[in-house]
Nucleic acid binder design. Structure first.
Lengths: 330, 330
DNA sequence: CGGATTTTTGAAAGCGCTTTCAGATAGCCA
DNA sequence: TGGCTATCTGAAAGCGCTTTCAAAAATCCG
């Protein structure tokens, strides 16, 4: 098809290619002729041929645990933003919190052809890195930090610790945790660990009946808190893995006649859209999704283009204090 | 690289290709040898070469107004589900409710190489269809119906009408609308039209001060309702373009001392996760996102593979009645 | 104005697969 | 076992670009 353009413009395909790729060294009149011809014909280069020839796919893959999860979507969106600017396409895939599936999806992307890959978290299928290494493309890990591999993320343990310390500073001693499923999820695990450590540092511990693991969502939060109440003395404060879980827990608390924050302080994670509008407005740990996505995108593009990069980027999470937390009742 | 496998297996690349693509007619022992060799070498076919050779990209594009919008994400997710089953990759792009941007993104996908394209809604840049036609790939329109082009969607006007009729059956006479921005958005427009028609059918009209257009989100909903109250006699019921808007309106109503549904009935759109958990639980129009995505995916795959399809698929939206609607106060 | 440079240009060689087509093998039956 | 099919297999021709390399054209300079 570049043939057609070449014929119409009275030049060779080599010149067509040069013009369309903006390389210098084409006389102005020929350049104009090519552009005209391409326009007239509505020429659209064949991406596969170009990719085959240049050995560049102009595409970057991303494998996230759940495309429907707000936190990941926000990061993907800002990630894509940066890719597009550099002329790259984002191809996103769903791993569904399962290492086998993640491996399968990543392999699929590798086969399809991508120039770089974004992954979430630290825990992967044992074969994943070998396979990526073999393909020779750069990778960036997001949402959690790593010493071994390039990453853009935050210290999940530290930010959860901060939340726990904040609650303890308010005077809470019985603190509970409702997290999403932690199997194959280093972020969730790290958060709980951070909380456990913070508690330990002040001589407290996370009671097993206050350590609840449920599936994500508002319904999960309700179930989780119900479960927690079933286990003896209730906590005076809880830290939830997401704002949805926190929302569910607050609903359940209200149903049980517990006032938030009077009888129960609640902290969420992610600062979802609705968090400031809950009743009471939810204290939560805000992840700077846009910055993570931008940094990850910039990093990957730079690596693909062979520019120097930093391997470790920490984007601090932030505790947003609203009205769902208060000192415990006397 | 298929070279390497061929050499190692002691066959030609033709046979390697045959084995790896599952085509019949390869003797069992050679087949096994090829599979072994491929495995040993960790062979991953070059997608570009394959695409160039087969003239198939094994990718499908989708351009949605906003990747961060729950309704679109859910459809994309189920759409992708079907594509993956058929071995296709989804490449999604953001149009941001702007026709120029949509055109640009669609063109980008076309260049990159996709075998099919999913679009949202009926209103597009005048050049879009010409460009798609030239590329010769099948397209499917989602979220709204069309007589001209293959589509999978629902009748936005009819479902909004249904909501209005339901409110009128409850006895409401002053009904307001808070919609998202309607510029270049046929769905929003159709919904308002549906409501206007339903009202007209019963001799009512939508007062201009009760027809509010705001940007999406909870904050938008609050602002919208505040604006509506500023315009004279308040409505006894409102229909909102999304559940987020409805949520915002409910918050604003409560702030103003209006009880829901006592003083104000509220209906949302989309049946978001949180809708059943609001206080009171939100009556809303549920869009069967998963079915839309599946149907759109199946349709496109069938077209790509040259199988017969139906051109018009209506997936009915459904009014989910919860507690945010009631007869108006006397 | 002729020769030395510099700038442009096109022919042709890939890129790594798939697929056709004809030849090689294997299988079958008399 | 020979002759004839039915199966398999590999050589080679693309797929539609990019890019190298050498030749052609334009420009420069003494």
């Amino acid at each position: 098809m570049a043939q057609d353009v070449a014929r119409r413009a009275g030049v060779s395909t080599a010149t067509v290619s040069r013009v369309l790729n903006g390389s210098a060294g084409v006389r102005a009149d020929k350049r104009a002729a090519v552009i005209r011809a391409a326009q007239d014909l509505g020429f659209v280069a064949n991406g596969a041929a170009r990719a085959l020839s240049t050995r560049r796919f102009m595409a970057v893959g991303a494998v996230v645990p759940n495309i429907e999860n707000e936190a990941f979507v926000r990061v993907l969106s800002s990630f894509q933003d940066r890719l597009r600017r550099a002329g790259y396409t984002l191809v996103a895939a769903n791993a569904g919190y399962d290492l086998e599936d993640e491996l399968r999806e990543a392999t699929f992307l590798l086969e399809r052809g991508v120039d770089g890959l974004m992954l979430v978290g630290d825990i992967h299928h044992p074969d994943l890195h070998a396979r990526i290494a073999r393909s020779g493309i750069p990778t960036v890990q997001t949402f959690s930090l790593s010493r071994e591999r390039p990453c853009v993320g935050f210290d999940n343990a530290a930010s959860a610790s901060r939340a726990a310390n904040y609650l303890m500073d308010l005077g809470h001693r019985r603190i509970g945790v409702i997290s999403g499923l932690r199997k194959d999820n280093d972020r969730g695990g790290a958060r709980v660990n951070g909380i456990v450590q913070a508690l330990a540092a002040r001589g407290l511990r996370l009671a097993p009946e206050h350590d609840i693991e449920i599936s994500y969502g508002i319904g999960g939060g309700r179930d989780g808190f119900r479960q927690m109440l079933a286990g003896g003395e209730p906590p005076t404060a809880i830290i939830c893995g997401t704002d949805q879980i926190a929302f569910g827990a607050m609903i359940e608390a209200r149903t049980r006649g517990l006032a938030v924050p009077g009888d129960l302080s609640v902290i969420g994670h992610n600062d979802s859209d609705f968090a400031p509008f809950l009743d009471p407005p939810l204290t939560t740990i805000r992840i700077h999704s846009a910055e993570i996505g931008h940094a990850a995108g910039d990093h990957l593009i730079a690596r693909i283009q062979g520019r120097p990069t930093v391997q470790f980027t920490e984007i601090d999470a932030e505790l947003i204090v609203r009205a769902s937390t208060a000192p415990p009742a006397r």
